[in-house]
């Protein structure tokens, strides 16, 4: 094999074999089971299920809210990472640990907590309601929940890049006459963009699959605040396995395409330095 080279890991054959086996066991076989289960349906039946208005509304909501949450995290994740890397302040370590909390918390707990706070008689819900903004049991609430659980991704992907970014780059830009915004826009942002996009992809993927935290705050009204994973669970509870997997397959395909898109975007934005 021409691509075989000496390396510290014991042999390409062994590691590649293990990788394939591992991916098969963990990812491909379970996924193909969904496709297999779905194939019990006829094409017509399949199409009927996956294009039902209730299903389509749930796709729009799930992917729309996940993307929105991921994009919010894109902006604020970079900001949080920036503050954590660039400034020394007393509670920095604590703040740094707080970022990971959405990872550690059982999502149902997060959901209940968010619902309590944003409900019309909650701490934040009440003042917001008096302003005419309703969060709990609306689409906005879903975006809030998905933003919450997606926060660590962008922060944790951007942080190491920012840490490694040479201070001299900013000094060079400054000595060449660039203002703060020019330095950020032309020098720093392009450097952290690929990592931030990776974080967006992860946050988005997590959002699409998120169930626990969303169902509490969403209100779960069909056509309005029902996310696709909930629709799948509903179908499962009705013993409609084929129907559930059909929708799951659509989710898989759309997720795959979107993630591929984000990955390509990321590759394109980081191509120069490679």
């Amino acid at each position: 094999m021409a691509f075989r080279r000496r390396s510290i890991i014991p042999g390409f054959g062994l590691t590649f074999g293990f990788t394939v086996l591992y991916l098969c066991l963990i990812v491909l076989i379970p996924l193909s089971a969904t496709v297999f289960e779905t194939s019990k349906l006829g094409w017509q039946q399949f199409w009927h299920i996956v294009t039902a208005p209730r299903a389509v509304a749930s796709y729009e909501l799930s992917f729309g809210a996940s993307l929105t949450g991921a994009l919010i995290n894109f902006v604020f994740g970079i900001l949080v990472a920036w503050v954590l890397v660039r400034y020394a302040f007393p509670a920095r370590r604590i703040l740094d640990s707080l970022v990971d909390l959405p990872f550690a918390l059982p999502t149902a707990v997060a959901g209940i907590a968010l619902t309590t706070i944003y409900a019309q008689n909650g701490w934040l819900g009440r003042p917001l309601a008096s302003l005419g903004v309703h969060v709990a049991f609306t689409r906005l609430g879903i975006v809030v929940a998905l933003t919450f659980i997606g926060l660590p991704f962008v922060v944790r992907t951007v942080q190491p890049i920012l840490q490694d970014l040479d201070r001299e780059l900013e000094e060079a830009a400054a000595s060449l006459g660039a203002g703060r915004w020019q330095t950020f826009g032309r020098v720093l942002f392009p450097a952290i963009l690929p990592a931030a996009l990776t974080g967006v992809a992860l946050a988005f993927a997590r959002g699409v699959g998120e169930y626990g935290s969303v169902i509490f705050i969403a209100g779960n009204m069909p056509m309005r605040t029902e996310i696709t994973p909930l629709l799948i669970v509903t179908k499962l509870e009705q013993y409609d396995y084929a129907g559930a997997t059909a929708i799951a397959v659509v989710m898989l395909v759309v997720s795959f395409v979107l993630l591929l898109g984000i990955n390509l975007l990321q590759k394109w934005s980081s191509a120069p330095s490679g």
């Binding site: 001299e168 000595s175 006459g177 660039a178 032309r186 020098v187 450097a191 120069p272």
Partner: peptide
């Protein structure tokens, strides 16, 4: 401030902008 002094500064480790071509690096200022 550095930008107002019209000084050219060359760093030991170059501090070139990695995502820009040679042309864009020189054109930056």
């Amino acid at each position: 401030a550095a930008g107002e002094r019209r000084v050219g500064f060359v760093f030991q480790h170059y501090a070139l902008f990695r995502h820009m071509t040679v042309f864009e690096n020189v054109a930056f200022g």
